[in-house]
Computed example of a mutant assay.
Amino acid sequence: MTAKHRGGGKVATAAQTLPDVDFRHPDLPALDRPAPDLPAPDRPGSDARPPGAGGPRYAGSPSTASPSTASPSTGGPKYAGVPSHVGGPSVGQGPGGVRRSSDSPGRRVARGLGELLLTCGVVLLLFLGYEVWVSNLFAERKQAQVREQLITSWARGQDPLKGQDRRNLPIAKQVALPAGQGFANLYIPVLGKDYVRTVVQGTSDRHLESGPGHYVNSQLPGQLGNFAVAGHRVSKGQPFLNLDRLRPGDSIVVQTARNWYVYAVLGSRSAYLAANKLADPDKREAAVAAALAKPDSQGVRGREIVHPAAVHVIDPVPNHPRAVATRALLTLTTCHPKYSADQRLVVHAQLSRAVPRTGSLLPAELPGGTI
């Protein structure tokens, strides 16, 4: 429709299909020019406007800004369709537009503490990532180098043990092995058909980063007494990560330059087989633990969990420092539980047989073995 200003003037046209939406603040004064008298709206959103509304408006369109009276708050001109507070101090600002801080000392302290905890959390995650993954990469590389050096020395006819790993060799002065040198390979079939780790001399942190380490005061493979080996459970190669999976009767095979030594985990094999038939998982696990903990005729258990200071577990007769060794044993130690060093998980095994190495033939306890 078309409307003319009283007294002459421009002609304004409003589209009838678009409802008029008044965006102006109710306290705004009218424009300096009088608006035409339009019919009162008969419903909300009608395109008709009340007198003094300042002319036709369109939905979604900004008001035609024209200077009017000075704003009392800012001293500048006011415009139709613009809220009167625009240009003045906003919420949270004082005179002159200076923002007042709403933070109390307590809030600032809490924010700082939160940022500190977040930073510590990120650093901790990075450290754990290094310990669990990055250190494993470095350790696996060192282990591969040690194994390659050992295989090369065997191929050249060199034996680091100098033939002192004969079965039932009485306890005597140990052969001098340089710290960190590999001298035997350790196979545990229950931990994987391709599980093999080269054992190095020494149990310091530096040596254990290269692989399982031989306790220097314990016996050698095949000797009467106790061939004791330590290894990390988590990080740095984690060779004994799943040592708790060993059960009574499981085979552990040690390879030297001249012989294969097959050890069997101690404990009650019959009790383990009976426990393995239980349907309830909790009862089965408890029965398996009891089978492993059952001592043999010399009081040696298949598995035990001890304090780190319990060094007698690597004696020639474990936990019996005054006893005389009459058989060849193997002891594996690692941290317990996983991701903790509060205790030690200890597994004992007894030598069941030894066979000379013949070319590339493997003992029957290993996959593809025939001897």
Rank of each mutant, 00 (worst) to 15 (best):
R141G: 10
G182S: 07
Q174Y: 05
H5P: 02
S153F: 00
S135F: 04
Q93G: 03
V21M: 11
A291D: 01
V134D: 14
G87M: 06
K173Q: 14
F183V: 05
R33S: 05
T119V: 14
R108T: 14
S360I: 07
L366T: 09
V265S: 02
V199S: 03
G76F: 07
P89Q: 09
P19E: 12
R99Y: 10
W260A: 01
A3Y: 04
G96C: 08
C335K: 03
S104L: 11
A35T: 13
K283W: 04
Y130K: 01
G163I: 02
L137M: 12
P316Y: 07
E115Q: 12
P41Y: 05
G369D: 05
A274K: 15
Y79T: 04
A35V: 00
R111G: 06
K277F: 01
P56F: 14
V132G: 01
L292C: 08
S63H: 11
K142H: 11
L38S: 11
G222M: 06
V122K: 04
G54C: 02
V300K: 00
R258F: 01
V317Q: 06
W260F: 05
R6S: 10
K78R: 12
L113F: 08
R33F: 06
E140F: 09
A341Y: 08
E131Q: 15
Y58N: 15
Y272V: 03
V324K: 10
Q145F: 06
L31H: 06
F138I: 15
P39C: 05
H25D: 14
A354Y: 03
R156D: 15
T203H: 01
H25A: 12
V346K: 02
A271V: 05
A80P: 11
V355S: 01
L177R: 09
V132L: 15
V91I: 12
P105M: 07
E115W: 10
Y261F: 15
E304V: 12
A12P: 00
G7R: 04
V317Y: 02
F23D: 13
S235G: 15
P89I: 07
P178D: 12
Q343Y: 11
N185H: 10
S235A: 15
R233I: 06
V300L: 00
R327L: 06
R344V: 02
R197C: 12
L329M: 13
A264D: 13
L137H: 10
G182Q: 08
V265K: 04
S73L: 13
S101T: 09
R100T: 12
R108V: 15
R353W: 01
H207I: 10
L116A: 13
A290K: 14
V175D: 02
A349F: 01
Q93A: 10
P56V: 13
